[in-house]
Nucleic acid binder design. Structure first.
Lengths: 224, 224
DNA sequence: CGAAGTATTGAGACGTCTCAAAATTAGTGG
DNA sequence: CCACTAATTTTGAGACGTCTCAATACTTCG
């Protein structure tokens, strides 16, 4: 049984991408909705499903015992997440806003992958994309200044949120951005103000998280 | 043609592990030596080979334009590195000390993986191990204090250098450790002194990098 | 033993964090 | 649609941790 991934209002063609490849391998896809703030899965829980964001946004994070949080990645429409090798999740995943995902049973995918090299290579591809992101993020977390981190973040979101004309509406709050960049929310706010003051960044209308990138070239200069 | 990976003095059984799996898939293995400080491959160079450390130690790093460096991982005997998905390397790899590696042509491995799901899953496994390490390291770089970072580093090395009784001989210098932990070498040195002062750490003999771990339990308490 | 490289230690500078208050935005019920 | 409240964001001032720069000590190697 197949559920057509594209039979979703507002979904984009590219969503068919990665999990779609797997669906051709006779694996069941189904859709699910999570309300804003809901946990999708917790760290150390058994990894029974693989997910792909259809609409909305998801954050994956790790916690230290005293509450310090590191967000490893934001998952936006089209992204595959929850791909683990062991039997349990290494992150907690939560819906940042109301979010729709497609999911498939991990065991069935793995079962197919054991005999079908194409599927196994698809999984390898998705994992490598995640690895590449993590590698770049280590450089950011280990060696970049707060301004460079925020600039890199804005450029990343500009590239992934596919909004027209350099206008991006961030789904996540300052605390999420801070925990993604290894900063405090105050420092993120100050960096944004600084970019605004330099004319690199503009804020649109009265809506909170609407940000207009005025000068991507100068932003890229900051993202060393 | 096979070169027996175990025909190496001092090599441990586990070295046969990962690349050994692939060797069974009729892929050519050969050995190579790199002198201390030598570059094995550079960032953005074509990724023609996959490597496994037989003896010695390797560091993988990224650079910012102004010279700031982030070491993403140390590769110790048994570790597979240089595994890329695209056609080029995402890190620069250098031998920290005189190092022996086995290597195999990437294209031949990939060719086999396209038809043999077992090999593809082996590659997936190795990539996932790297991903898992990167994910843990993001938490360290984003949210841990200098003392916690150094404690985590010592525990990691204690677990991987397979020396008996909590005694480890670090192959890398303070600067390497610092660039791995997102600190300066002075801060690393101060943290080590602090641990020494607390009696958690002892130094052995006159050799520079000989460190004796006295109290793994108390180290683990610091590694939140 | 001397020279070069590496590690330790100290003192002050700097960037980010903490704590606090004010401003803005979002959510809710009238 | 407005008023009210809660949540989020911005801004400020001072504290704190790590970095920078410099001097000393130690290790390695010829």
């Amino acid at each position: 049984m197949f559920i057509n991934v594209n039979a979703h209002p507002g979904s984009k063609p590219k969503i068919l991408g990665e999990l779609g490849q797997l669906s051709r391998a006779r694996v069941i896809l189904s859709e699910f909705n999570y309300n804003r703030g809901t946990e999708i899965y917790g760290q150390a829980e058994p990894a029974d499903y693989i997910y792909q964001v259809v609409d909305g946004a998801v954050r994956s994070h790790k916690l230290l015992s005293d509450g310090r949080r590191q967000i490893g990645a934001f998952h936006l429409p089209g992204d595959v997440f929850g791909l683990e090798n062991g039997t349990e999740h290494r992150f907690t995943a939560e819906a940042i806003v109301d979010t729709t995902v497609t999911l498939m049973k991990r065991c069935s995918v793995e079962h197919v992958a054991e005999s079908d090299a194409t599927v196994a290579l698809d999984l390898l591809n998705m994992t490598t994309i995640n690895l590449q992101h993590a590698e770049d993020h280590m450089l950011l977390l280990g060696r970049k200044t707060s301004l460079e981190r925020v600039a890199a973040f804005l450029l990343e979101m500009d590239g992934r949120l596919t909004a027209a004309g350099g206008v991006i509406a961030l789904p996540m709050c300052r605390r999420d951005i801070a925990d993604y960049l290894g900063l405090t929310l105050e420092t993120v706010s100050r960096a944004l103000s600084q970019l605004h003051g330099k004319g690199i960044l503009g804020f649109l209308g009265q809506t909170q998280r609407q940000i207009m990138l005025l000068d991507r070239t100068r932003l890229a200069d900051l993202d060393l």
